[in-house]
Design a protein around this nucleic acid. Structure first.
Lengths: 341, 341
DNA sequence: CTGAAAGCGCTTACAG
DNA sequence: CTGAAAGCGCTTACAG
C-alpha cells in the first residue's frame, strides 16, 4: 500500500471544494447539487481516486466483514457452505474472512479472540468436533456481534442456527428402504455425542419401529469418524451376519460407498441382495456404481441462509433478542443403489 | 459493534497514564518499564480491553489481509489451495478474504476494483476461464499491492506465479504407460486455449515421440470442460477404435473415472486390456475401482507457497521488481488402473 | 522511561 | 447547497 493514493482532501484542493462536499458528492448525498456531483465524480475518475475503505470503516464503525469459522475448508460440505455464504455476502456488499479450526477447540478459541478485535460485524460458525463448551462465544453477544451456527451447532445454548432436519431425513431414508421391501435394515451410525448423528440414529429407529414393530439393536453399528475405511470395517461385519441385512442406511456417503464396494467384491448384489442409502449427496454418490441413493443435505443453501440471517441480524435496528433456528428441507435422491426390482 | 468497547484512552484514565504509554506497554515496547507493562497488561485483561484493530490498521496502513480470487470455492482443487493459503496466513498473522469469480471476467473485474479500496496488502488469483486480458490487474502494481497467480496464470504477463510442471507431469504419466508395455496410448486433452492443458498435451506428445517414434493424432481427443459426462463420450469413441487403445492418459481425473466405468461396462478389463492414468489425485481416484493412477497436483502445497511468496513480497523492504515463478514438483501416484501384469 | 501532540482519511452534526 | 470543525482509536516522532 504505497502512498501514491489520492485522498478526499487532494480532490478537494484540486476542485476548490471542501472535503465534506467531496465526501457527500461521492456518497450521492441528496443535499449536493447535481452539477457538483458530476464535477466531483468526473474528477475522481480522472485522477483515479480510490476511497480508503479502512478509513471509512473506522469512522463508521462498520467493517462490512463477516467472519466464518469452519473445521476445514477442503471438506466438500464446508466448501459448498462457504460458497453459498460468499455468494450472498458478495451480492449484499459484505466481505467474507475465513478461518479453519482444524477441529481443535484451542484453535477455535484463538480464532474467536482474533475475530473480536478484527471488528467483524457478524460470525458464522460450524463447531469443532471437540467443542462442548461455548463460553468463548459469549463475548460476541456482549459486543453486539451476532452469531449464526450451522450444521454442528451448540446444544443447550440459545443462539441462531441453520440446520437440516436430521431426524426426519433419516426417517425418510429408512422408510424408503422399508417401502422397497427390505425387512432387515442395518444402520451405520455416527458419533453419538454429535447431535446430528444422534438424530439420524433416532430417525432410523423411529421408522423401523413404526413399520416393523421391533428393533434389532445388533443391526446398528456405531462409528467414530464415518470414514471410508471405517465403512469397510462395518461392511465386513455385516458380511458375517446371518441372515445378512437386506438394506443399509448409512449416516454418510463415505461409508455407504465403502459398503457397496466391499459387498460387491464379496459377490453381494446391490440393490438386489442389499439396498444401500447414504447421506449428504457427495459428488461421489453419482459416480459410484450403482449410483447411490442419498439425502441432499442442502449445503449450498445452508450457506445462503446463514449469510442471509446473519446480515439481517446485523442490519436490524434493534438487534432482536430472540434467537432463530432455520430448518432446511432435505430431499431424498433415489438412485440405483436402492432400486430393488 | 456496540460501543461498549473499552479504548486505550479509557485504560489510560483508569491507570493514570498516557495513552501513548498504554499503547507501548501493550505492544511490548522496549522503552517501557516491566512494572508498567505488567500493570497495564493486568488492567487490560481485567477490564476486558480489546484493541480496535481497524483503528490500528488504519493508522499503520496495514490491513494484514490477503485477498483471494478463485473461480469457485466448491471445486476441490481450489478448496485445497485455499486451505493451504489459510493455514500459512493464519500462522503468519494474516487474514484471508475470499471471492469467487464464477469464471466470469465481469465479476473478476468487479472484485479487483473492490479489493483495490479494501486495502488488502496482497492478492492471490486463479484466473477465470474467460480471462485473456489482464489490464484489470495492472492497478495493483501501481498501488504497490503484490499479486501471486496460481494454476490458471496469465501468459505473456510479467508477474508472480505458482505452477506445477504440466509438461513434465504429463510426460511422466505417459512414459509410465509406455513402460507398462502400452503401445497404443490415447490422450483425452483439455481446452487448448488454457496453457496447462496445452502443456499436458505437449508432454504426452513428447513422451510418445521419444519412445514410439511416431504419433497417431487420431488418438488425441480434445474436450472442452473435461467433465465426467464428456469423459463418457470420449470413452464411447475409443470403444469404436480398432485396434482399441491399450493405454489412456486423461488430462484430469473426472474423465479418467468416466472412461474406467464405461470401459468396464463394455467388458474391457482395466488395466489388463487398457491401462488408465488421470491427473490431479482427486479423492475419487482412490475410491474408483480399480483405484486410479494419477498425478498429485500438490494443491494444498500450492496454497502454502502462494501465501508464503505473497507475504514475503508484502514484507520485503524494497518491493522486488523481479517476478518469481515457483514450479512445484508433482508426483505420479501409481495405483491399480495402470498395473498391467 | 513517560507524555503531549499530531495525524492517519474519512464522515457527520452543526452552522450558515 | 456548502463548509469548518470535531473526532473515530490508535501510533509514533519528538521532547523531556
Amino acid at each position: 500500500m504505497k502512498d501514491s493514493r489520492i485522498t478526499l482532501k487532494d480532490l478537494a484542493q484540486v476542485l476548490n471544494l471542501s472535503p465534506s462536499t467531496i465526501s457527500r458528492a461521492l456518497a450521492d448525498h441528496p443535499a449536493i447539487s447535481e452539477a457538483t456531483k458530476e464535477k466531483v465524480q468526473k474528477k475522481a475518475e480522472e485522477l483515479g481516486f480510490i476511497p480508503n475503505s479502512i478509513a471509512s470503516s473506522f469512522r463508521k464503525k462498520k467493517s462490512h466483514t463477516l467472519g466464518v469459522i469452519v473445521p476445514r475448508i477442503d471438506i466438500h460440505f464446508h466448501s459448498l457452505v462457504i460458497s453459498g455464504i460468499e455468494e450472498f455476502a458478495y451480492k449484499t456488499g459484505y466481505n467474507v474472512t475465513i478461518f479453519q479450526s482444524k477441529d481443535s477447540i484451542t484453535r477455535e478459541k484463538e480464532i474467536t479472540k482474533l475475530l473480536q478485535n478484527k471488528m467483524v460485524e457478524g460470525v458464522i460458525v460450524c463447531l469443532a468436533t471437540e467443542t462442548y463448551n461455548y463460553d468463548h462465544f459469549k463475548k460476541f453477544r456482549k459486543l453486539g456481534v451476532p452469531l449464526v451456527f450451522y450444521d454442528r451447532v451448540p446444544s443447550n445454548y440459545d443462539t441462531n442456527k441453520i440446520v437440516i432436519n436430521d431426524f426426519e431425513s433419516a426417517f425418510k431414508a429408512t422408510e424408503h428402504l422399508i417401502k422397497k421391501g427390505c425387512t432387515r435394515i442395518a444402520h451405520i451410525a455416527g458419533n453419538q455425542s454429535t447431535p446430528i448423528f444422534k438424530a439420524r440414529l433416532q430417525g432410523y429407529k423411529s421408522a423401523i419401529k413404526k413399520h416393523h414393530g421391533n428393533l434389532d439393536e445388533k443391526l446398528i453399528i456405531p462409528c467414530k469418524t464415518l470414514s471410508y475405511e471405517e465403512g469397510a470395517l462395518c461392511a465386513e461385519k455385516f458380511l458375517k451376519f446371518s441372515p445378512m441385512p437386506d438394506g443399509i442406511f448409512c449416516a454418510n456417503d463415505y461409508t455407504a460407498v465403502s459398503v457397496i464396494q466391499v459387498f460387491r467384491k464379496a459377490g453381494i448384489k446391490i440393490p438386489e441382495d442389499t439396498a444401500v442409502v447414504g447421506f449428504s449427496n457427495y459428488p461421489i454418490s453419482r459416480v459410484i456404481e450403482p449410483h447411490l441413493t442419498t439425502i441432499n443435505d442442502r449445503a449450498f443453501q445452508m450457506g445462503i441462509e446463514a449469510a442471509k440471517l446473519l446480515i439481517r441480524l446485523i442490519e436490524e435496528e434493534k438487534k432482536s433478542i430472540k434467537s432463530e433456528t432455520i430448518t432446511l428441507e432435505t430431499e431424498l435422491i433415489i438412485r440405483e443403489s436402492s432400486m430393488k426390482p
